[in-house]
Amino acid sequence: MNADEKEARLGYLILLPVFLTFALVIFFPTIKALLDSFSNLSLYNKQNPAFIGLKNYVGLFTNSAFWQYVVRTFVLVFLAVGLQYVLGLALALLLNEELPGLKWAKSIIMIPWVIPVAAMVVMFNWMSTPDYGLFNMILSSIGLEEMTRYWLGDKAFAFAMVVLMHVWRNMPFYAMMLYAALKAVPKIQYEAANIDGANAWQKFKHITLPNIKYPSMIVIVLHVLWTFNNFDVIYLSTGGGPVGKTEVLATQVYQMAWTNYEYGKASALGIVMMLAMLAFSTIYIKLVRSDS
């Protein structure tokens, strides 16, 4: 055995615990779920589930409710990520101004991101309550009593509230990432543009945007994956209601598996979700690797 082989062997040994963990918590469950998705596995036939081919998948695709959840999930991702990015970038640009007296702003904006979703949901629920919630108190105090309602339980507004919570929680993360990227833009580029007499918009378009393109893509793709797969924001705030108005794919998988105990069906839906995100994941990996 030469020195290189010996070294590689030590490398494998060190990596083994990580590999075993990944195998246990990601690879094995994924393969098992894929197999289960072709069976009628449920709580009641755990010992002898039958192979039923593509029946679970056919059942999904021929169910109109499934397509509703697909559309709603994508609308949520589009709205949440879109708003998070636009607002996050605006906030990053404002932070980058280093306004005297407001420099401490940077140190508090990430707080929504570090608290548990379950806590955030109670905070927004408390603000939404009909008679003594903050939103309604503000509306009443400016003479808009007729607008007051239980915002999280309202058919027309529950979905907007879900988007709002996603934005509140993650927009600061975008802001910090983009702020870090803005800081890294060479000042000399702006100075050169100033000499050429460029206006603020031209500088933004031709210097700022190209320089933050890469971190922007990363943060967007990551949050597309995160929002698409997110379960607890909706489950804990509206439970998918009222009357299914905020139900998305992730909450459906959970309900199929842990309310109805139809593991086979739930696995099929989860596999469909995973395949849908494969494309985004590929983009993310290409981005990260092209850089390093």
């Binding site: 994924t30 994956l225 998988v253 598996a257 739930a266 696995s267 989860g270 985004f280 994941s281 993310y284």
Partner: peptide
């Protein structure tokens, strides 16, 4: 291994939880 690290976000946790 690096690939699976980067793609870990892709796996829906609601799915992994079942198996």
């Amino acid at each position: 291994i690096i690939l699976s690290l980067l793609s870990a976000n892709m796996f829906p946790r609601v799915l992994l939880l079942i198996p």
